[in-house]
């Protein structure tokens, strides 16, 4: 009788597990900021898959543990022995092989997702069409850009990070800015450089991230698909004013993007305001101040357009 009861309970619980896993997997899309690049959609899909699988395993083990804790407690002074079973080859083989298959599934699926993303990064072996590797020397994008006769050729934007400011240069129009404007639905190519320490390019809505290594030039590519205003953050700890190293990112319609570039090109270059420099000049009141030495904020970028 107890056996039957337990079987029924198990069946019900497995059903609950499946429903809960699928439901949480669906919910997972809403736990992250809106996806604003095509890569973001891929990553959200992967995350939803991981949450579904993870929930199923978590609830499975928790169910077993919880059931045992509730039903198997001995009276406090009863230190008599449980059962002598030391293991079972069948069960142990099962719980070795199943995780192997699961992790292969997860890795394989992640690999598929990664193939669908087109983000370049330090080097590329998946055969996406990127700018040639530009390690060490000056970037050779000017040579490759015209060869792409595509009408909507991807704009190339140079990104420079320094303690603690972002600067963007649009070489085609010779425009510099501390705001990053991107045309929507176009494959964007960024050329990332750092003038001092490690930094990281991260816009949460874009989902992807790339560290910027001083002394190297790193390509970074993605396709924004949603018009809006976002916040670029430095994702790699870069010292005292790290938390202030932000820049506004605008994904514009092609029309607005062109207009912005044209207007910016007419503006004379001027030093941009900078949060780190401002706070360094006049630090806000704190309960405890160490007054330890800090690296001074680098000279603010001189740009055509600043926010």
């Amino acid at each position: 009788m107890k056996r039957i009861l337990e079987t029924v309970l198990l069946a019900v619980y497995v059903a609950v597990m499946i429903v809960a896993s699928v439901w949480l997997g669906r919910q997972a899309y809403s736990w992250m900021p809106v996806p604003a690049t095509s890569e973001a959609q891929q990553i959200d899909e992967l995350f939803s898959f991981l949450v579904t699988l993870g929930t199923f395993i978590f609830l499975g083990v928790m169910g077993m543990l919880g059931y045992a804790i509730i039903t198997c407690q001995a009276p406090p002074d009863d230190y008599s022995e449980g059962h002598p079973a030391r293991g079972s080859l069948k069960i142990e083989a099962l719980w070795t092989i199943t995780p192997i298959l699961l992790v292969l599934w997860i890795s394989g699926y992640s690999f598929k997702i990664y193939q669908r993303m087109d983000i370049a990064g330090p080097t590329d072996i998946l055969g996406h069409k990127h700018l040639s590797s530009m390690q060490g020397g000056e970037p050779n994008y000017t040579a490759t850009t015209p060869s792409k006769s595509n009408a909507r050729s991807a704009p190339i934007i140079e990104v420079t990070a320094k303690q603690w400011a972002w600067a963007f240069r649009y070489p085609d129009k010779n425009v510099t800015s501390t705001e990053l404007h991107l045309p929507v639905n176009q494959h964007i190519r960024l050329v990332l450089r750092s003038q001092d320490v490690l930094h990281g390019f991260y816009v949460p809505e874009f989902r992807i991230k790339q560290d910027i290594i001083p002394g190297r030039i790193i390509n970074f590519e993605f396709t924004p698909i949603r018009v809006g205003k976002y916040l670029l953050k430095d994702s790699h700890f870069s010292g005292t004013y790290f938390a202030l190293m932000h820049a506004n990112v605008y994904v514009d319609s092609q029309e607005n993007y062109d207009r912005w570039l044209a207007v910016a090109a007419t503006q004379p270059p001027a030093p941009a305001p900078n949060l780190a420099a401002a706070e360094h000049a006049e630090s806000p009141k704190r309960v405890f101040s160490s007054n330890w030495y800090t690296v001074l904020p680098a000279a603010p970028p001189i740009v055509n357009h600043s926010s």
Partner: peptide, 15 residues
């Protein structure tokens, strides 16, 4: 395991 899934890690790395 989620973090090991490299594309997802690119989002949450250093967060």
């Amino acid at each position: 395991v989620m973090l090991g899934a490299m594309p997802f890690d690119l989002h949450v790395n250093n967060t």
